[in-house]
């Protein structure tokens, strides 16, 4: 690639390292538990959205069913822990692998679909998963699973007295998702994905393996989202089908990327950094009334941002001449 591109990639990496270092230091100054909570969620959603962005942003296969992988990650980890005593660290990996395999299994028929048919299929499959878990007695059915408290330990990834380990794990997850995206952006896959997104037929005719590049994107994306799901389960220590596999998670994963800039390296992080604190604050400020004011504020913001900035917030920073490169 040309020099500009290489220079930009180096610059991105440095900025990311600096941001991560600053983020790692924030707990020294932020002692308030509520704020820490918001920071953890923000980092988690940034990571999730970054992972979603790989399939839906870079490869252009809009999925509104990623809650399935999120839930699978959460359930695999907790079921292995509860029923077989497998440590969450291995459960996390297992969840990721299970999700990636399922994503590829589903991709086989799904990736023949295009446009609305594909989007609806992704929503529907997540909904089927939700209903099945709802009725699966062994997995807790609608009651869900309460993760037993066994005291603070890194081994079991459980912490009662402090939220800091969760914070650092969320940060690590976010960095991992970012780094994977960064790395893939300049790989063969990255170029294939963008070609598939822009015009699958043309890409195919130029020798791009369209089907396998979609499969690759789906697997990476599902794996990372499932790890996020495992983390969330440990973090909230209670899961039920609705709270980890509900449709809202699919949207919450997509929103930061869309608002920040879909198919961009920085879009998901930027979107999450603005959207999640905003969501939590409106809920905190207006949610108590139970009268939906938080929904009104939140919905209005989504409408306004998506109308005003169809390319996402990141487009505010883009220098007009370089749009071709900065995408």
């Amino acid at each position: 690639m040309d020099k500009d591109f290489a220079a930009r990639r180096r610059r991105d990496l440095i900025i990311a390292a600096v941001l991560a270092a600053i983020a790692a230091l924030t707990p020294l100054f932020v002692k308030d538990v509520v704020v820490q909570n918001i920071l953890i969620l923000t980092l988690m959603y940034a990571g999730l959205s970054q992972s979603w962005n790989i399939l839906s942003g870079y490869c252009g296969q809009i999925s509104l069913g990623h809650a399935l992988y999120f839930g699978l990650g959460a359930y695999t980890t907790e079921l292995l822990f509860m029923k077989f005593g497998v440590l969450p660290w291995f459960g996390m990996l297992a969840g990721g692998v299970v999700s990636a395999l399922i994503a590829m299994g589903l991709g086989y028929p799904f990736f023949r679909l295009r446009g609305h048919y594909f989007v609806i299929a992704t929503i529907v499959i997540a909904e089927i998963g939700l209903l099945l878990f709802h009725n699966w007695e062994w997995a807790g059915a609608a009651m869900g699973i309460t993760i037993p408290i066994r005291g603070d330990s890194w081994l079991k990834f459980q912490f009662l007295r402090t939220k800091l380990p969760y914070f650092y794990f969320a940060l690590a997850l976010c960095c991992l998702a970012w780094f994977v995206t960064w790395w893939l952006e300049d790989s063969k896959w990255g170029f294939w994905w963008r070609a598939v997104k822009d015009n699958p037929d043309a890409a195919e005719s130029l020798g791009v393996d369209v089907f396998n590049s979609k499969m690759g994107a789906a697997a990476v994306s599902a794996f990372l989202v499932a790890v996020g799901g495992s983390f969330y389960a440990q973090f909230v220590s209670y899961i039920d089908p609705e709270s980890v596999m509900g449709f809202q998670f699919s949207l919450l994963m997509a929103l930061p990327a869309v608002l920040g800039g879909i198919g961009t390296l920085w879009g998901p992080v930027l979107g999450a950094a603005i959207l999640i604190p905003l969501t939590e604050l409106t809920r905190f400020k207006f949610g108590g009334s139970g009268r939906g004011v938080d929904l009104i504020v939140y919905g209005t913001l989504i409408v306004l941002i998506s109308l005003a900035l169809p390319r996402g917030l990141l487009s505010l920073f883009a220098r007009p001449k370089k749009t071709g490169v900065s995408r």
């Binding site: 939906g292 504020v297 919905g299 209005t300 989504i302």
Partner: peptide
Amino acid sequence: GLAIVMRG
């Protein structure tokens, strides 16, 4: 977003 506003 509109749907959320309407529900709210």
